[in-house]
Amino acid sequence: MSRLSSKADLLRDLGKKALVTYIVAGDPDQSVTVPLMHKLVAAGVDVIELGVPFSDPEAEGPVIQRAHERALRAGTSLLDVMQLVAEFRNLDQATPVVLMGYLNPIEKMGYENFAQQASKCGIDGTIIVNLPPEEAADLSRYLEQHDIESVYLLAPTTTPERAAGISSRSRGFVYYVSLKGTTGAGSLNTAEVSGKVRAMKKIVKMPLYVGFGIKNGVTAAAVAHESDGVVVGSAIVDYMAFHENNIGELETSVVTLVQEIRSALDALVA
C-alpha cells in the first residue's frame, strides 16, 4: 500500500479531517517549490497535490491558469516536477505527494517511462483532470505496476451509477468537485454541497475529499462537516501570485492560511 492510501486510511481511523493543498510546481520558479512543500507539511498539510504546468489547462480558472503560465515561463517541465519531488523526498519520506495535471505531457513521455520515473522520484499518486476512468485503462496498468495510485474525480453532474463505478477505481481518496465550474470559481453554497456530499458518501466507500471554492477556515469547516477532508488550491495560489516577488512574504501568507484552515478542521473533531 502506498503512502497515500495508508495516510488516508490512518486519518479516517483517527477521525481526523484531511487537509490537501495544491500548488503548481515551479510557480513562480522552481527554487520556491521544495522549501514551500516542507513549510506546508509543518503547517499541518496531510497530502500535497503538485500541479504539473501545461500550456492548455482547460479546467482551471484564471488564478491557476496564471500559475501554470508563471511555471512554464520558469521553464518547468514534467521531468522537472518529478525531480522536485525527488528533492522533497531527501527530507520527507512520509508525506504523500500526488501529481495533478493534464494527460498530454504524460503521453509524450510515454506511460511506462512516466510510471517508472514517478515511482523512482517518490510520487504516490496522480489526478489527471482530462482522463476519465473510461480512457485510463492503459495508463492505470503501468501505474499499478509501480504502486502509484490513481485518484478520480466526482462532479455535481455525476450520476449515482457513474459515481459507484468511479469510486471503485479510485485509490487513496475520491476527489469531489464541489461546484460546476473551473478552479477558484465563485462562492460556495456550503449547504448545497453538504447535501450532495451526504448523498455521495452513501455510494463512495473510501475517503471523500471536497475541493473547489474552499477559501478559508470557515468554508473548509463547513464543507468538512460531511466530508473526510478538503482540498485547497486557488486560495493558496492567489497569495503566491500576490507575493511572487517576495518569497518570504509568499511563504508567510501561505503558511498563515494553511494554519487557519488546519485549526478550523481540527476544531470540528476536537
Binding site: 480512457e135 474525480l153 457513474r162 468537485v177
Partner: peptide, 20 residues
C-alpha cells in the same frame, strides 16, 4: 460506441462534462 476512431478520438474531459 466509446467514441473512438481506432486509437483516436475518445472523451478526454473533466468529470463535470461527462454527463453533458
Amino acid at each position: 460506441e466509446s467514441g473512438h476512431f481506432g486509437i483516436y478520438g475518445g472523451k478526454f474531459v473533466s468529470e463535470t462534462l461527462m454527463a453533458a
